[in-house]
């Protein structure tokens, strides 16, 4: 059974195949797909192939609690645009899996606007083959709004990715945490441009960015460019990047406990992968993704 089959077996799946949207429960309205408060209703969004000019809009009404699983399987003929509107106290947890392969660049833009106390958590797993251009714009418009976005990307062969992530703190007491765990194998090139901005007057906010990258092979590249634009004193802001090959001291430590070099590297990689697989939720889908990850990191000589 393919991942598409696994994801679409859910009785609550939205499938975008070219410009055709099939959704088993809700109809698209002028406000987009609207989620209301009530019980959690997990939704699998499967993009088989995106050929749609209008953005897919998801609106989460007050106090909605929703789990989404977005799986991009094939390619985007048109840039795929997703827009999330989180109203007060809405809470959305989303796992994104980019399992696509395309001859032409795949372009995906996600824009999310968060109102008072809204929470958005995103766990990304990017295994795309080919060229990928991603843009994430998060606007924390309401007091107490909170975004946490963690990415695992594994690039191999001639994969290349250019990603721009921007968080705009536009209210007091807003919190953003962006964590990127990147693995580049062979000749993969991953470029992350991460920006956080806290405007004046939006005190008691916190904006943190963390980028960690592992490079396997002489031609692989990871570039992370974290930026903080802070115009307010009473805030917490931090960024960091730790990128490079597995270093000698790390290997020495793990090997001194009896792990072979490949087991040690594998363990370090598992530290990147494990938390993401835990976040997927569905064990069958997680197992399918794990198999794809194994194939992707073959070139690192640790499988």
């Amino acid at each position: 059974m393919t991942l598409a089959d696994l994801a679409s077996r859910s009785d609550n799946a939205l499938i975008l195949d070219h410009d055709n949207v099939a959704y088993s429960r809700l109809e698209e309205t002028a406000d987009g797909y609207v989620f209301s408060a009530g019980a959690d209703h997990p939704l699998n969004i499967i993009v088989v192939a995106a050929d749609r000019l209008e953005p897919l809009v998801f609106r989460f009404r007050n106090k909605t609690l929703t789990t989404l699983r977005l799986i991009i399987l094939e390619e985007a003929i048109q840039p795929l645009r997703l827009a999330f509107e989180l109203e007060e106290d809405a809470s959305v947890k989303m796992t994104q899996a980019f399992l696509s392969h395309a001859k032409t660049p795949l372009k995906v833009t996600l824009t999310a606007n968060l109102q008072d106390r809204a929470k958005l958590r995103i766990d990304d797993c990017i295994l795309h083959e080919g060229r990928l251009e991603l843009t994430d714009i998060y606007q924390l418009q309401g007091e107490g709004a909170n975004i946490y976005h963690r990415t695992l990307q594994i690039g191999a062969g001639l994969d290349s990715t250019s990603r721009h992530q921007a968080v705009r703190h536009l209210a007091k007491s807003t919190v953003s945490e962006l964590e990127n765990y990147l693995i580049a194998v062979d000749g993969a090139k991953l470029k992350y441009d991460v920006e956080g901005a806290i405007a004046k007057g939006h005190s008691a906010s916190a904006c943190t960015q963390f980028n960690r990258g592992l490079i396997f092979g002489e031609h692989a590249e990871i570039e992370a460019d974290p930026k903080l634009l802070i115009d307010e004193y009473d805030v917490i802001a931090a960024h960091g990047a730790a990128i490079g090959q597995v270093n000698e001291d790390e290997l020495f430590y793990l090997q001194s406990r009896g792990l072979s070099e490949s087991e040690a590297k594998r363990l370090i990689v598992s530290g990147y992968v494990g938390p993401l697989l835990d976040a997927v939720g569905d064990p069958d889908i997680a197992a399918g993704i794990a198999t794809l990850i194994e194939a992707k990191i073959k070139g690192a000589g640790i499988v």
């Binding site: 406990r257 792990l259 072979s260 598992s270 530290g271």
Partner: peptide, 17 residues
């Protein structure tokens, strides 16, 4: 080692023997 739990690490080390 971020992402690797203490228990899993020690278990791996003991298993290696």
């Amino acid at each position: 080692v971020p992402g690797v739990t203490n228990f899993d690490f020690v278990k791996t080390a003991v298993s290696a023997r």
